[in-house]
Amino acid sequence: EGALGYVREFTRHSSDVLGNLNELRLRGILTDVTLLVGGQPLRAHKAVLIACSGFFYSIFRGRAGVGVDVLSLPGGPEARGFTTLLDFMYTSRLRLSPATAPAVLAAATYLQMEHVVQACHRFIQASYEP
């Protein structure tokens, strides 16, 4: 009554968009960067990486990032953490276990994903409590 206009907010929209982006990733549609993790190539969308990681933001935001379409990430223990973080970026679900948390923590530190770093610390702390 008397309202100037109506807004219908679709509360599932952001998760539905993310789900579709993940489907595009899995099918290699519009992926524009290859991440080499321990020699394993992972295809992804720069826009998703830059939105989720301070490290990728600093690389791809500038003109220098335009030509970068293959990027090597450190191998070693944190390599497994990078695939967990890539899945997190596209699903909002961060898989952690006592065995994998240190690798995820190291990878999140490298990718400057501070909120994930804090969540890993909370998880590791909790797993030490009796």
Binding site: I50, S53, Y57, R93, R95, E114
Partner: peptide, 22 residues
């Protein structure tokens, strides 16, 4: 079947905020 996975909901911010254009 896969081991039991407990899901904990995190309500806080999950990723960095891209600064708004000054």
């Amino acid at each position: 079947h896969e081991g039991l996975v407990a899901t904990v909901k995190e309500a806080g911010r999950s990723i960095h905020e891209i600064p708004r254009e000054e």
